[in-house]
Computed example of a mutant assay.
Amino acid sequence: MIHERDIAAVAVHALTEGGHVGAKCVLTGPQVLSRAEQVQTIGEAIGRLVTFERVPVQVARRQMLADGRPPALVAALLASAESRPVSNVITSTVEEITGVPARTFRSWAEEHADEFR
């Protein structure tokens, strides 16, 4: 996970400083969290107990289509969710470029808590 403000900060440096032309940067936050850990962290940020539940693909498909998402988008989202490899990659790229460590998922959840209430 990467905080959107970290992406923006890297972009500012890349666009305003020399030495970034053609660079391919892998940006990550400072930790890898499972979906359940992300949900737990959001729950802590909003002061409520929330839990992560896996949803069967057919149920997810039905719900997304019922919500009005285009069938092609639903198919793409579900295909990517099923085939996404597990990643434990953590980079220091944000800090190397900006001079400031990447923000945590907890800080993101706390900043966005009102959106989950």
Rank of each mutant, 00 (worst) to 15 (best):
S34V: 02
A36F: 08
A14L: 12
T51E: 05
T51A: 01
T104M: 12
I42M: 00
S87D: 10
A76H: 07
A45F: 03
A75K: 13
G29N: 13
T16N: 08
R61L: 02
E96S: 06
S92F: 09
A23D: 05
A75Y: 07
P71V: 09
S87Q: 08
T91Q: 15
L33W: 04
R106P: 02
G29H: 13
S92D: 15
I42K: 00
I42D: 01
M64Q: 06
V21T: 14
R35K: 13
L27I: 09
S34C: 00
R69W: 05
V89D: 10
W108Y: 11
S80V: 08
S83K: 14
E53M: 01
K24Q: 15
R35P: 00
G43R: 12
L77K: 10
E44C: 03
V74L: 14
S107L: 14
P71Q: 08
Q31W: 07
T16E: 15
V55A: 01
V50A: 02
R103G: 01
V50S: 00
S80H: 03
R69P: 04
D67A: 13
A36P: 08
I90C: 06
V26G: 12
H13F: 02
E44I: 03
H20I: 03
A79F: 00
A76M: 14
K24S: 10
F105R: 04
E82K: 11
I42F: 05
H13L: 08
P85R: 15
E37D: 09
S92Q: 14
R61K: 14
V57P: 07
